[in-house]
Computed example of a mutant assay.
Amino acid sequence: MAKKNLKIAFFGSSIVSAYWNGAATYYRGIVKSLNKMGHSVTFYEPNIFERQKNRDIEDPDWCEVIIYEKDKLNLRSLLRGVQEEADVIIKASGVGVFDEFLEYEVAMMKEEDNLVIFWDVDAPATLERMEEDNSDPFIPLVPEYDFILTYGGGKPVIETYESFGAQKCIPIYNALDTETHFPVEEEEKFNATLAFLGNRLPDREKRVEEFFIKPANELTNENFILGGSGWGDKNLPSNVNYLGHVYTIDHNAFNSSPRAVLNISRNSMATFGFSPATRVFEAAGAAACIITDYWEGIEQFFEPGKEILVVKNGDELTKILKELNDAEARKIGKAALKRVLGEHTYQHRAKLLEKIFSKELFGEESVK
């Protein structure tokens, strides 16, 4: 039985702002579910990238949020308090400032009665970096952490982390937050044949051109919607409506209104597979008909053809859009919603985390 009221310190990019921060809803779902189980979480995030000016939420009642300035002396002071109080200390990848410093300091906080965890929300990028540079300062730290948790990646990521000496690597996949993502009435401004929401990133852009822009050029009589930051100067077809940043308050309508919603993986995530994006579960939670580019491991989360539509190139996607009617799209969306409610909510993920925490701290026999 896991100890109740664990004190968990979590260093991450941001839990209050999704601005240039795709991990925000992932963190919220995990932390909120841990709080419901009786654990208290303090989330430490830096005041950078104008995220505090572009908040999606105020400080929540399900965790304490501590925002620190870009000041290493102040951060050292925070860390001293964390080591004295916390049962579990988590350093997430991609905090955005003092990452190497935090990775070392958190690893060195290991004591007999606590857990230190590195939570990699972009494992493909981290592993690629370490494989290309054997002097990477994170390499000797990997074995010092009790657990390496990852945002996804499946067996390839687990085996690669273990090759660097990880004591235990366990994926904690994205999931659905049932309190924030659910079906809503359609909104006219989001009506379209196909909608895609994603920030402009170098290792995703060519795939966006193939899976979104190419079909839009082919289907000139259909309407397409593009949401996300950074696409303002992109040459887009005239039938693409670019919305810019879409705040989380509008995500349900964005997912519920179009005939289909597109998921496009980043190159690194597609290469490693087993890495469904947060927005896949958000869209499924809104009963959207999801079309995704192919990546290994899809079948672990959704049944292709019944709960999700899978394409390997833009031509296949164009063909699907020509044949997909509203009734079939709604049927697929309802099946996806049923699947995530049964297997892929953050309550499911938090139960796994409790097993992980209790194994090291309180004598659980195994993590299943």
Rank of each mutant, 00 (worst) to 15 (best):
D113T: 00
F212R: 01
L197H: 08
A2E: 07
K168M: 13
F302D: 03
V280R: 15
T150H: 10
L309Q: 07
M37Q: 14
T248K: 11
P276S: 06
A23I: 09
I298C: 06
E296N: 11
K189Y: 13
F281R: 05
E364H: 11
F272Q: 04
S229L: 15
F281V: 05
E69Y: 12
E307D: 05
V16Y: 00
Y44A: 04
E50I: 10
F224L: 09
K36V: 09
V88I: 15
K36S: 10
A23Q: 14
Y161E: 05
S77D: 06
L243N: 03
G198C: 02
G305N: 10
F49E: 03
D56P: 09
G227E: 00
E131K: 08
S17V: 00
R207S: 14
D59S: 12
E354T: 10
P237W: 02
L262P: 03
P137Y: 12
D315M: 15
I15M: 04
F211K: 12
G29A: 05
S366P: 06
E112Y: 09
T160L: 11
A192W: 02
K319W: 14
L79Q: 05
P183Y: 00
G285I: 00
S13I: 12
E144A: 14
K306D: 11
E188K: 02
A277K: 14
W20F: 15
E323F: 04
L79F: 07
N313D: 11
P124F: 06
N114F: 12
L321T: 04
D250I: 05
H245K: 02
V95I: 07
E299D: 15
I225L: 10
I158C: 00
T345Y: 09
P137S: 11
S135P: 06
D133R: 10
A192V: 08
A253R: 10
K234H: 12
F272T: 09
G244F: 10
V31K: 02
I139Q: 07
E299C: 14
T126D: 11
V280A: 07
I117Q: 11
Y44Q: 00
T180C: 00
T292S: 15
L75D: 01
K91A: 09
R339C: 12
Y242S: 06
Q300A: 13
E112R: 14
F274I: 03
K312A: 09
T193G: 11
H348M: 04
D326F: 06
A329P: 08
V97Y: 04
P156V: 00
A24D: 05
F11G: 06
K319D: 12
F362W: 12
D136P: 02
I298S: 13
K72C: 04
L236M: 05
A286Y: 07
T220E: 13
T220L: 08
L73Y: 00
I249S: 15
Y151R: 07
K110Y: 03
A270F: 05
N263V: 05
L115S: 04
R266V: 02
S265G: 08
D133W: 01
N114G: 11
A335H: 08
K351Y: 12
P60H: 13
I89T: 08
A9H: 03
A327M: 14
I356D: 08
G230V: 08
T160M: 13
N35V: 01
Q52Y: 13
L201K: 13
K234M: 13
G154K: 09
P140H: 02
P137V: 11
F138Y: 14
S17M: 07
